[in-house]
Design a protein around this nucleic acid. Structure first.
Lengths: 228, 228
DNA sequence: GCAAAAGTGTTCGTACTACACCCATGG
DNA sequence: CCATGGGTGTAGTACGAACACTTTTGC
């Protein structure tokens, strides 16, 4: 008996700006079809690696360039998650620097837009489920891998990093302890630049030293940020 | 253009006994085909949830009953991982109590057998890769989720638990500190039974209280076993 | 000189580490 | 009585938690 299963990929793309976590959604306008917002994604081509399929769809549909991309989970237990066909979807998890990102302009056929997590509408298929899984993964990874930097510009303020953690983990953090902990790792370096700010004391810009982090990991280093 | 991708599931089934970690492999004898050992698995049926597909294959091919089963990773980047067709495989990770497991008897068409991890031969397709990913997951999860109990009988000796951790994590552990830590969680209870042993002082049997663990998790409890 | 955000140290308590001896049984 | 594995306590240390004032700038 011939197998009748279609294989798709979907991507949950997170961005962060001004103490807000965003997710990138698209809306494809078919006539007569109710235009739910959805995660970017689509069918995998027969000769295409999964990861290439995600990258292609992201480029075609949103034109963003990602800093971090990893497989999240494969959704295939609900046989009717797509009402038209049996579709199994391999979901990916992506982080981008929202500040430098210019998302694809809206066309007649397609909208692309950032949504704050709290304002995400009902999505197509089981995409709300996928998003929830991605948020869970993001929160978990933030505490044991230095992926927060992939949501920030290459040079960033300490206060941005701190706010990012507060925002995403939905916790209050002691500024002094946070700074001490992060600096103790030795994977963040001060640049000689200062941020131009509207008010208050000027802040130094910092940079994540990925080379150093990778080297330290090989020596057995574990990144970890925990809070009470 | 029609999509020509087949979807399969594979399972990495771990067992533990006498300070040895085992994985369950099968060998399907086709005539003329070189009989590589492989992970149990097979194609997903068109109307079948992924998880059901794994359970079905495990039952058909090995007849084991699993204590723990979770999705591991989806292997679909190597377009030629199966030389005959494009096959994408959703790999699962399973733990069973090897002591009570009676694996399916060998038939003319099929062998089923435990292999110690260090003695695993070259496997079919990219199954060695999948196994490596599963071992990594097992080691990681052991430190932050109480899944070790799923490799042991319902009632077990403390020394078994300790040896399980030593064996799988390939580390030495201080017996006193280990016992203190585990008992401090309050998720293990002493039974009034003693093990019948060949030599030495009789040992108490312990039992994992999953209800209590689940309740504690809801209250914010984190299981964690780390070693220097 | 005031508002606004950046930067910085110390104390306290808890939890991990290291470590060695006695106990209960079978043969 | 001896071999075998089971069971237990303590002292030192290091790390996380709590906590508030000074500094630099723009207006």
């Amino acid at each position: 008996m011939e197998q009748k299963i279609k294989l798709a990929v979907d991507a949950v793309v997170f961005g962060y700006q001004n103490s807000n976590l965003y997710v990138l959604l698209i809306q494809q306008k078919f006539d007569g079809q109710q235009p739910y917002w959805a995660l970017p994604g689509g069918l995998v081509q027969s000769n295409e690696p999964l990861i290439e399929a995600v990258k292609r769809e992201l480029k075609e549909e949103t034109n963003v360039s990602v800093n971090y991309l990893e497989q999240l989970y494969t959704f295939g237990d609900d046989v009717n998650r797509d009402s038209r066909n049996r579709v199994v979807s391999v979901a990916y998890f992506a982080l981008i620097d929202a500040s430098k990102t210019i998302i694809k302009a809206d066309t007649d056929a397609e909208n692309v837009q950032w949504f704050t997590i709290s304002a995400v509408p009902q999505l197509a298929f089981d995409h709300n489920l996928i998003l929830t899984a991605a948020i869970t993964r993001l929160k978990a990874k933030l505490t044991y891998q230095p992926i927060g930097f992939d949501l920030l510009p290459a040079e960033f303020l300490f206060s941005d990093l701190e706010n990012l953690y507060c925002t995403i983990l939905e916790k209050e953090i002691d500024r002094r302890n946070f700074r001490k902990k992060i600096l103790s790792f030795g994977i963040i370096e001060e640049t000689d630049k200062l941020a131009d700010k509207k008010s208050g004391r000027p802040a130094k810009l910092f940079r994540f030293n990925k080379q150093k982090y990778d080297a330290m990991v090989k020596e057995g280093f574990y990144f970890e940020i925990r809070f009470a």
